[in-house]
């Protein structure tokens, strides 16, 4: 049984059209590296990263989803448990930006009402191919009252920052439970063998 080495667990979800760079963003954040040769995500992928925020160790369980419509029945089932959702578009592809409205509707339909949302305009290193201005990104985010960043997984711009801000927003609305209650939970699950659900 692995020891609990964290205080809180946050479940995050990455969504957006296919090819906008969701897997690359996650890879940059979790492994601090960039790789152009990613195969397409089929169904759902998963990574873990533990961060420290305000003296608390927070384990981020991050789900990376496939972008294509076909996988929506598979992926929308993850919306419900997510505490934070990152909606990614590609600043060089207007279509992926236009689809933000569609993705936001998906969130409204399938996610918890109080889920923390964030919009990311990825590939901002490709300035010469830009088709969506930063202002348009900011405008749609403002309209929906959502945080917004332009990011580059390639040049490592705003990746860490966006994850940290999302985690912070979730932390702020997490009722400040007494940490001792958490420890009690840990002991309970340890004594009952491998039945831990909170990982």
């Amino acid at each position: 049984m692995a020891k609990k080495t964290y205080d809180l667990l946050f479940k995050l979800l990455l969504i957006g059209d296919s090819g906008v760079g969701k897997t690359c963003i996650l890879f940059r954040f979790s492994d601090d590296a960039f790789n152009t040769t990613f195969i397409s995500t089929i169904g759902i992928d998963f990574k873990i990263k533990t961060i420290e925020l305000h003296g608390k160790k927070i384990k981020l369980q991050i789900w990376d989803t496939a972008g294509q419509e076909r996988f929506h029945t598979i992926t929308t089932s993850y919306y419900r448990g997510a505490m934070g959702i990152m909606l990614v578009y590609d600043i060089t592809s207007p279509k992926t930006f236009d689809n933000i409205a569609k993705w936001l509707r998906n969130i409204d339909e399938h996610a918890n009402e109080d889920v923390e949302k964030m919009i990311l305009g990825n590939k901002c290193d490709m300035e010469e191919k830009r088709m969506v201005s930063k202002e348009r990104g900011e405008a749609i985010a403002r309209e929906h009252g959502i945080r917004f960043f332009e990011t580059s997984a390639k040049n490592n711009i705003n990746i860490e920052r966006s994850f940290m801000e999302l985690a912070e927003a979730i932390l702020n609305k997490t009722p400040s439970r007494d940490t001792s209650t958490n420890h009690t939970n840990v002991h309970v699950s340890q004594s009952s063998g491998h039945s831990s659900k909170c990982c």
Partner: peptide, 11 residues
């Protein structure tokens, strides 16, 4: 699988 927790098993 029987030894690991959820995240290690997912990986």
């Amino acid at each position: 699988l029987l030894k690991n927790d959820f995240s290690s098993n997912m990986k």
